[in-house]
Design a protein around this nucleic acid. Structure first.
Length: 181
DNA sequence: GGGGCGATCTTCT
DNA sequence: GAAGATCGCCCCT
C-alpha cells in the first residue's frame, strides 16, 4: 500500500484509526490516537529542540518515543511540520500471548499509551527509527471506520482542542469519549 | 467504577 | 523545586 505520514498531525491521527500496527508481528488495530501540532502549547515540539525530542525535528514517518512520568514510554508518529500523533490504544489482536507476558496480566493490554508500548515492546531504542521497515508493519484498513473526536487526555495546555480520535464503539479505548448530545 | 497516591526521568523556572 | 501526552495499587461505594 502507499502510506505517507507527510501530512498534518490531525489528518494522520484520523487516517491511523482502523489501520493495523505490528511490531515484530505483535499488535493490532489502532483504535485511539491524539494529534499534536507544531503550533500547539501541548506539543513537545512547541518550545523547540531539546535533548529528548529530536525525532520530532527529523523527517515525517519516523517514531518519536519519550519517557512519560519517569517510568513509562509513549510512542508517536512524526508528521509534517514537526507535528506528531500519540498512539493511545490498540485492539490486542496479534500475538496476544506475548502481550500478556510483557504486561503481566490478561487484561488492559493496550488501552493506554504506556500500556501499549509495554505490550508491543517499544522503548527508547525505537526513537527516531523510520516506520516503513522492520520491525514495524502497517496494514491498511479494510473498511472506513466510524471516527469519534474529543478533548485530549492528561494535558493542561490547549486542552480544549478536540484532537483525540477514536474508533466509535470500540471496547479497547483507554477511556470513553464524552457522549454526543 | 472511581478517587488518592507513589514511582521516577527530563525540562524549565 | 515543580510539573508533566501515566499507571498500578489500595480503598471505598
Amino acid at each position: 500500500m502507499t502510506l505517507t505520514f507527510d501530512l498534518g498531525a490531525v489528518e494522520v491521527a484520523r487516517l491511523l484509526i482502523g489501520m493495523t500496527l505490528l511490531v515484530d508481528g505483535v499488535g493490532g488495530m489502532i483504535v485511539e490516537t491524539e494529534a499534536y501540532e507544531r503550533d500547539d502549547p501541548a506539543s513537545h515540539s512547541f518550545r523547540g529542540l531539546t535533548k529528548t525530542n529530536g525525532a520530532m525535528f527529523g523527517p515525517p514517518g519516523c517514531a518519536y518515543v519519550y519517557r512519560s512520568y519517569g517510568l513509562h514510554w509513549c510512542f508517536n508518529i512524526v508528521t509534517r511540520n514537526h507535528g506528531a500523533v500519540l498512539l493511545r490504544a490498540l485492539a490486542p489482536e496479534h500475538e496476544r500471548t506475548i502481550m500478556e507476558v510483557r504486561r503481566g496480566s490478561t487484561r488492559h493490554l493496550c488501552d493506554g499509551p504506556g500500556r501499549l508500548t509495554q505490550a508491543l515492546g517499544l522503548s527508547k531504542i525505537h526513537d527516531a527509527l523510520p516506520l516503513d521497515g522492520a520491525p514495524f508493519t502497517f496494514v491498511a484498513k479494510a473498511v472506513t471506520p466510524e471516527i469519534i473526536a474529543g478533548p485530549r487526555i492528561g494535558i493542561t495546555k490547549a486542552a480544549e482542542r478536540p484532537w483525540r480520535f477514536g474508533l466509535d464503539g470500540s471496547p479497547f479505548l483507554s477511556r470513553p469519549f464524552p457522549t454526543r448530545g
